[in-house]
Design a binder for these strands. Structure first.
Lengths: 193, 193, 193, 193
DNA sequence: ACCAGCGGGACATCCCGTTTGT
DNA sequence: ACAAACGGGATGTCCCGCTGGT
């Protein structure tokens, strides 16, 4: 077994990191395999040893990106109280997140994914469900309409960030983030009288 | 001058209709000028007589699509009461809208727009502002946090529809639409003491 | 008929000029289509509109290069006397020719051609016959063994230049050129008593 | 030490024999290490135990091939008279040699070598000088222009065989071989008063 | 001495945006 | 308004040289 068995995994991870960053910032079609590999310090030659095709890479990159978004990285403590949720909302619905390189693929790729193949949409759906579950697990005190509230909340989060990135006026984006943040928190509190 | 000058305008409109439909359903990169022109019953050759380039068409198509979405078409009555808003929410946050061909470009193109040129983003931003304004104009009884509430609401609407279209499970999409609809209405009512 | 009909021919010629230079200086395998096109100020995309494949380009480049070698370019006058032949020998069997960029493909590609497909070898053979014919046409006074002498002469010319280019010592190459030149002239004279 | 150390040398020789044959018949780029090793009855893995890289093998193969060409193998007797030279010319300038598998690398690789690294060209140059020297040593009676004559002669020999191999018409190759042979012998005689 | 496999790079195909002249 | 075609560029396949561990 030549090459330490982690070698390939490391390379693969490097490719994924580049892919996640490039895909989320430029979209699927505007990111070439060449670019991804060059960004990872490699050439296209070796690409197909790691992924079956560009769509495959996209799928995996979504997973990779999801585990590096504010959602996941703010989670280490895992305390299931309002503190965690508050922190996540503050991080997610922020101008920084909108302009970040490592961002939530659910928001940054939502339109892109809709026109891709089933495998990619499946990955997206799975990631989406995870987001909902994580938030649900950290939400206490929402006795009624809990599921509805959370689904609407994540839609607002994803939509807010996605729209915020599309706008050409930073001030409006700022206002949008603030609004979503305020209402989101209110939503969670309000539903629990 | 064999043809009256409105002939050109009509042709232009036919191109725009095709473009709006194709762009919103397949995205910018996956839609070729060839397709658009063929769909409009023309050949590629004449395209540049109407638009300077593909990006130009995209910009115009966003405007065109926006004026044909449930948001706009549900508006003719223009009655500024809860009835109108209720109807719009019901139409917008519905499975039918998600699967429709003539859909809200704000939701269907949000990710796509974010990676395009300034001109396109400007058009998007303008359209976005119009959506907020129209809803604000039809909203009564929201004395506090009106602007925040509306911005959060449109983010939820756009996000909900965008996510709903990306998911690969119709049931989940259904549930998502319902949730957003319920919470949206609640939001508008709840914010009013 | 869009584009002036010479446009494509001009582009084609530019590609051929680059190809001839690169192929003769680096050989078939060490010259990529990318390089050729870049050298011609184009990209690979358009290559296959001009040539069916790399081998095709090679074939044509041999012809092109042959018409630009000292053999052909020294010929304009076309006077069928010893002067022309003398000039050709002096130009062909020279260090300058060995180091030139636009050189005789018969010498610079001889080994390369031997391992290529039939079409390429056919082109080479044709070019080779032309070289012999041109020299024969300009040779007077060789009553006996004329054909043998000329074939041996061209073999010496081609071999001399080819070997001269492979050697790593300029002085030896110089001596080789001189030797071939002297003996070549002697050969033509000697055979005619 | 399970195997006597000559085992390694034998293996090395087997590799060289295969390499010489394959390189001279297909050129450097069209011969893979895989092929060479397989031809020698080994696997690719062991290659780097014998040679530092492919270029190294090429260098050594040139030397090996030279010592097995008609030039060298016709030499055993070593009689320094016209008989030997006559035999060599007859063997070298023959259709059989052109089609042989173990052929003179000076002729079969001349173009190939010209585009390789200095080390390879050095080996080629050395081999070339040896060829000239051997012929010079066996040549008597050439009082004037001996060096020139021999250099021109070897250029003709190498050129003739190289061209003969590139042509696609066996008859022409035949005629070329005959011509070179006739003139070569004449050259040696003619230069002697 | 072997062997798996990593990473490089070229080729050919496909498809698209755009330009040019009609 | 059309039609032809030019030129750009990305994809995926193939194959090869070399290296790292066994």
């Amino acid at each position: 077994m030549p090459y330490p068995k982690e070698h390939k995994a490391k390379t693969r991870d490097r490719i994924l990191a580049s892919a996640a960053r490039l895909f989320t910032s430029k979209g699927f079609d505007n990111t070439s395999i060449d670019e991804v590999m060059a960004d990872a310090g490699l050439t296209r030659g070796g690409f197909y040893a790691h992924f079956s095709d560009k769509g495959d890479l996209y799928s995996e990159a979504i997973v990779y990106a999801a585990s590096n978004s504010p959602m996941a990285t703010g989670m280490p403590a895992g305390k299931k109280d309002g503190t965690w949720l508050d922190k996540v909302l503050t991080g997610y619905l922020s101008t920084e997140h909108v302009n970040a390189e490592n961002s939530c693929p659910l928001a940054f790729l939502v339109t892109d994914v809709a026109v891709r193949n089933p495998k990619i949409r499946k990955t997206y759906t799975k990631t989406y469900r995870m987001m909902n579950k994580v938030i649900a697990d950290h939400t206490k005190g929402l006795s009624t309409r809990k599921e509805e509230t959370i689904m609407a909340l994540t839609a607002m989060m994803i939509g807010g960030v996605a729209v915020g990135r599309a706008l050409d006026d930073p001030d409006t984006t700022d206002k949008l983030m603030n609004s979503c943040r305020v209402i989101a928190k209110e939503l969670l509190k309000l539903s629990a009288p």
